[in-house]
Amino acid sequence: MRKSLTTLAVACAAFLATSAFGQTPEEVKKGVEQYREMLELGNPAELYALKGEALFKKKRGPKNASLEQCDFGKGPGVLKGVYAEMPRYFADTGKVQDLESRLVTCMVQLQGISEKDATKRPFGNADKPSENEQLVAYIVSQSYGDPINIKLDNPKMKEAYEIGKRLFFYRAGPWDFSCATCHAEENTRIRLQDLPVLSSPAGAKAAMTTWPAYRVSNSQLKTMEWRINDCYRQMRFPEPNFISDSVIALTTYLAYTANGGVYKGPGIKR
């Protein structure tokens, strides 16, 4: 007995292309939202998380160790809820670290991999995702449903927040942009893309509870480090270093502003 039932195939390019003409902007937007909802049923970010889990548990590096004993702030081996409390201060490194920075620390400390190798390819492409992206997808998915809770209970955390806030409003570059140019006014958008007001709790929550995310337009999982990197590219700035204090400070400002938001990542974006 063979029963062929309903199949739901996700096709993206055609959908977006056909929605561009003969519709009002509201209709176009509604269509995009509908499409996004449909995709949430099967977010390909889960495929990244599956690979990330395998990588996380695999013995690797000169020390032939897995990352399972990595301490993301709640003790070695604890993954549940850790992303919702990052960036955070780590006494062993004396630094405020985001998830991606902490992963590098663990690769160096536990697996004996050099920092150079651990940071060689932070961002991948659709054909070849980076290991960083896969590990991130796995770990953030362990914080699903947990409220964002960043505490400025340490001078370094306070410093990261204060510097991050100033980075957010710092105008420079040939186009005079700051993060606030696009992310400080309600109900604005670039082309059809809505822009969250990241300096307000509501906007910061909307963003920080849904990143990292799978981006349908380029079939890739994108991390928070990437999000900030690509914003600076579009702001026409020079490039921020991967897991640098500045990127972590900006993330700390955004995450603290998003405190209380319930984490729903990895998300899915246009």
Partner: peptide, 8 residues
């Protein structure tokens, strides 16, 4: 069918 397809 798209990359990384979903079937339900």
């Amino acid at each position: 069918i798209s990359r990384n397809p979903l079937f339900a």
